[in-house]
Each structure stands twice: as C-alpha cells, then as structure tokens.
Design a protein around this nucleic acid. Structure first.
Lengths: 350, 350
DNA sequence: CAATTTGATGTAAACGTTTACATGCGATAC
DNA sequence: GTATCGCATGTAAACGTTTACATCAAATTG
C-alpha cells in the first residue's frame, strides 16, 4: 500500500537504519549515501509513517485539547491561540469537543490516551478523581477554567470574579444602587464565579442585594432577552443590568429597546467577554475584556513545558487577569465615537 | 511505563492473543477466561495502546479536519457539526487550523498523513496538484468550499452565488435600484462568489451596476464600518447595502447610524451567514441563512462513506442550499417583534 | 608498527498491538 | 470405534519505525 522505509533502503542499497539516520539526522552519514537515500526517497515519495515512529519513540508530538460544546466566538479564539502556539513548538493539536457530561469526558480521555503527549482540558464536568483514574500519571495535563482541587494538575483560570466585581464597582461609581444580573448557565463554573463577583461588589457597595435581582439564563442571546424581560418588570425597576456574557447582553438590549426604554439613559447595561461585535452594537457595549487568545497560548506553553520535564515539575495555578472595556452602554461619556480608536478606555480589574 | 497487553496476559494466565480477543470480541472466548482477563485488566488499569493497534490494523478511526485561520462563530459551528457526527460513527476528529498559505497547508497535510483515515479540507489556498502530490491516492478527501477542479475529490460548496442573488432580487422587489455591496476579503472564494451573485441579480434586474457601488472589505466588523462609510458618501446615495457577511453588516449598521440615517427607512441593509446575533440587533438583520452545522455533518458523512468504500467510490460534488431570513433591516414589515417566534419568514433561494 | 580512536554502516531487538495458522480436545456423527 | 467438526487457546509473524550494539575499515596516536 504505502511505501515503507524498507523499500527506500533497498532502492538506495543501504540498510533501513541508514535511511532512518538520514531522515532524523541522528548519526553521521556519508554525504554520498545520504544523497542516494534522499533521491530514492523522493522518487518513491516516501513519507515516514508517524505511527511506527511514535510507537518506537514513545512520543507523538501532539497535544490534545478537550472542549465542551462549542458555541460562539469564544472557542474559535481558544483553539486558534492553542494551535498557533503549538505549531511554533512543532507540536500538533488534536481537538475533541462536545463533551457535556462525565461519561463523554471519560470516553474522550481514553481515546486521547496514547495519541497525545499532553492534554489541555476545558470542561466543567470534570473532577480530580475522574482524571486520575482515567489517565496515566505521567501524562501532563493543564486544566482550563475547571474547578479541580489539589495540586495534581496545572491549571489556568479566568478572573471571572474579579472582573465582574470591578464592573459592578464601576456601575456603583455611576450612582447605581439597584443592579440586576442575568445569570449564566446553571452549574457552570464561569457563571457561578461571575455571580459571586457580582454579589461581593454589590454587598461591599451597600447596594441592593436581593434574589429578585438575580435571574437565570444560559449564555445565549435568547436567554438574555427573556431574563432581561423579567428584570424590567420588577418594581422598583433596576437601573443597571449586568449580563453574564456579551451574547446575553445583546439579547437584553433587544428586550430593553422593545419595552421602550433607552440604554444607557434609562438603564445601564454591561457584558462579559468583549467579543468583537461588542464595540459595534448601538450603544457600544461596556464589558469585561478577556484575553482569550492569551489563554490558549498560556495553556500550550505550560503543557509543553510539562512534556519536556516529563511532568515532574511542581504544578502551577495561575489566574488570567481581565480588564474593563468602558464604552457607552454603562453611561460613560468620555468616549470617542469612532470605532477606529486604537486606545479604548480601559481599566485594570485588580 | 504504561501497562501492556503482555502483563495482563501473564496475570490472567493466558496468551496475549486471548487478551486481544477479549478486548475486541473478535473470537469466541470461554466465559471463565474472559472474566479472568477482564479482572486482570481492570486491576492493572490496562488500556490498549492505540498506536500499536492502529499500526497493526492499518486504520486510526480518526478523521482530520484542516481549517484556515479561525475567526467568528462560523468555524465553531463547522467543528461542532463534524465532531458530533464523527462521534456517532465512532470516529474521532483531529483538527488543525491556521493554515494560510500553501506551505503551511502542505506541512499540515504531511503531518496528518498516517494519523487519519480520511481528510476534510477547508482552505482557499489549495489546488488539486498540491493535494495529489502530498497525499496517498487511497486517502479519502472531502473539500469544503474549496475551488478545485476535476473529479479526483469529493467536494461540498455553499451556494454563495444563489444566496446573494436571491437576496438582491428580494431588494429589487422592494423597489431598490441603486444597491451597493461591501465586498469580502480579496482572493477569498466565498467573497468572489457572493460578488458574482450580486452582479448577476443586479444586471438581470436592470438595476445600477457600477464599480463605485462595489467597495472592498475583509469580513470583519471594522471593515464593514469603513466600507459602509464610503458607500454613504456617494451621490446619489445607494438605497440598499448588501454586506458580504453578517459581521460586516453589523459594522455597516454602526456607520449608517453615526451618519444620522435610519435602517431600513433611509437605507436597507442585508447580510450573509445568519449568525445568532443577527436576530437580536436593532433592527433585526435580514440575511442569507446557511446551515453551517449541516455542512460539517455532510462532510463527515461523506468522508466516512469514502473510508468504508476504501475511496473507490465515484466522487461527488454537492452544493449546500441557502435560504433567506427576512427580518427588519431590509424593510420587510410582516415581522413579529418577538424573537421567540419559531417560524421566521424564510424563502428558498433557488 | 601496534594500539586506539573515529566514522560509516549493518543487525536485530524493541515499541504494543492484531490475526493467520496451528494445536489440542471434547462432542457429534456414522 | 474412528472420522469429523467446532471451540478455546497458543504461536509467531506481521505493522513501520528507532536505536543499542556490533562490525569493519581507515585514520590517528604513541
């Protein structure tokens, strides 16, 4: 079927070891024979079989990336960040997605086993035990935005809490005291942490803390639309709304407009993520900026480091900072109207 | 390091062949020994090594997906469609992205070689020769939105031309005769085809066909904003704008609003793709709907079919139809205000 | 000039599976 | 009672590499 190292060897009149040496530059080879081997190889269109190679070398030069159900722009960015960084280090990326419960995750873990030298896992449905039971101890793992205790694995988390908290403080500084929140998907770690950040800042700022002001949602435009409707029917009505992500904020904006209210004059609105479209809706959306691409870069860097150290390094837990992108929807007025502006008004959230 | 089939065999007191048989249900095995093997395997936490397995069986049970630079929601959807469909057929997905020139594509092709049983390629930078030269003839390939001649490979294309053409006819039916277009990225196949569809329908409808009405862009919100600005400064001003995708339409909307004009009263605006956010901006965006998820599903289905037929089937070229999502931005008035509406007004584009 | 090093290559044993073939044995058939 | 069958299992050869070790000639060293 496919041409093997043996055929190249016999055509070049050498042993397979020599062919291997030529392709790996692993040992000195006479220039003459090297040329003969190369010639034979190109004539036969020989490409080394990666499986044989990996089996023999006990490494695959690839990194696995386990993701939950993909939606929106977020994961595109994560994948891009990972892939580009991996390529720079001569690693390949093996992505597997759509794992929305423990069983699916376990199946994915097993299938990745043997195929990759390291693993990046982004899944709310994972716990330390599942991992330890399904993976060889020597396999480097970096957890992205997972809630896993212990020091068995590296982890990187987004500063959800700090980001929302800073945003709420910003709203408080505008004079708001009755601030509602559109919550994200239930049992989702990001959603939970953002809610915590909201409560923390609301309480610290002596604003109104009430279950009525916390309405459920699911990170989609549709759920933002619905949830905002509920907040708007409260009396007294909240004067500001925090959406758990930008998509929900966009849905909320649509609902607010239909009810005849204006943003930001009648009600302030803010989001989370800072997806590209946030700057282009009217009014432009004030939101918490996350360096999504940087998340992927950091994860790959860390896992490759672990691979090179044979996973014997001390595990690290890092938190990716966020910053505020202050635009019009919160009522800030010191904004240029042009979207071309290179320097938007931002503020560190820490 | 990792526990192998040999250790399981010796612990269960059988040969490695029997262990293999138990794990593959390939031959009858006595219930007693089967139980002993299973017990030994779980005690040792044995997981078959996929590389050895693939090497021996000459198949990997995985499909490669080659993508260009990822951005926006589009690719998330493609990947999701592919992954879910692949999983249903017990295949795994190996994604590699960020290939923006011929060299990178070739490198990716080589690296996929041996790792996958079939390949889905989505890249404008590919041609039949590159493929034929870098891939074994037996490897099934499905081309997604690529412009490749010949009958060597299966292909699936989006009906860009028909979609835009239908949309322009819709605008003509609203009475518009001076319609501008915001072009997509240069040298991009989708962009070129959409432009063709525009010209075709404009010419057929005896509307104004002029280079001034075709302004360059690059599929991003920012480029839509800029390009729209140029159209708005024309005199006479176009009364309708076709954006080459939804992101550009959103950028354009922002620019139109800043110039003090209203959509759709002063100027109609339409997009392409029908990304989720299109229904939630104000006014809701009339756009060409593409079943992105279905694209992934179709691609995987086709490539798996080819794998099972050892790539000996006759190659197919199919075109994915589009339909119009008629909302407010084009001036249609027969719209419900609620986003919850299950049945939006749609029209087949063919 | 003998001893040692160096360079170029070949041999064969891994790596962890699957599977064609062989073997042995109890049961059925006649 | 022998021939035939089928089941359960073992043996060993693939699959396509890498690499430790061996070999041998030529060059260097003293």
């Amino acid at each position: 079927m496919s041409v093997t190292i043996r055929e190249v060897a016999s055509r070049a009149g050498v042993s397979i070891a020599t062919v291997s040496r030529v392709f790996n530059n692993s040992d000195p080879v006479d220039e003459g024979t090297r040329a003969r081997v190369k010639k034979a190889a190109t004539e036969l269109r020989y490409v080394p079989n990666v499986l044989g190679r990996s089996l023999s070398m006990r490494r695959t030069d690839s990194i696995g990336l386990l993701l939950p159900d993909l939606f929106g722009e977020f994961f595109s960015e994560v994948i891009r960040g990972c892939d580009q960084t991996a390529q720079q280090s001569n690693f390949h990326l093996l992505v597997s997605s759509s794992h929305n419960n423990r069983q699916e995750i376990e199946a994915a873990l097993r299938m990745m086993r043997g195929r990759v030298d390291g693993l990046i896992i982004m899944s709310p449905h994972i716990d330390a035990n599942t991992l330890i039971e399904n993976l060889p101890r020597t396999l480097p793992v970096v957890l992205l935005n997972c809630h896993v205790d212990g020091d068995d694995f590296d982890s990187i988390n987004i500063d959800n809490r700090g980001g929302v908290s800073a945003m709420v403080r910003h709203l408080l500084s505008h004079g708001h005291t009755r601030i509602g929140i559109l919550k994200g998907t239930e049992h989702n770690l990001d959603a939970a942490e953002r809610l915590l950040g909201y409560r923390e800042a609301v309480a610290a700022g002596s604003a109104v803390l009430s279950p009525d002001l916390e309405v459920p949602g699911s990170f989609s435009e549709a759920s933002g639309y619905d949830a905002a409707g509920k907040l708007l029917s409260l009396r007294p009505r909240p004067t500001a709304i925090v959406a758990s992500n930008d998509s929900m904020a966009i849905g909320a904006l649509s609902a607010i407009r239909e009810s005849g209210l204006r943003v930001p004059e009648d009600i302030a609105l803010v989001g989370f993520d800072d997806i590209p479209v946030a700057a282009y809706i009217t009014p432009s959306l004030t939101t918490v900026n996350v360096d999504i691409d940087g998340l992927g870069v950091a994860a790959i860097t860390q896992v490759i480091h672990a691979v090179k150290n044979r996973n014997a390094h001390t595990k690290q837990h890092s938190v990716l900072p966020t910053r505020l992108s202050l635009r019009h929807s919160c009522g800030c007025t010191n904004q240029q109207t042009s979207h071309q502006s290179q320097k938007e008004v931002t503020a560190e959230t820490t």
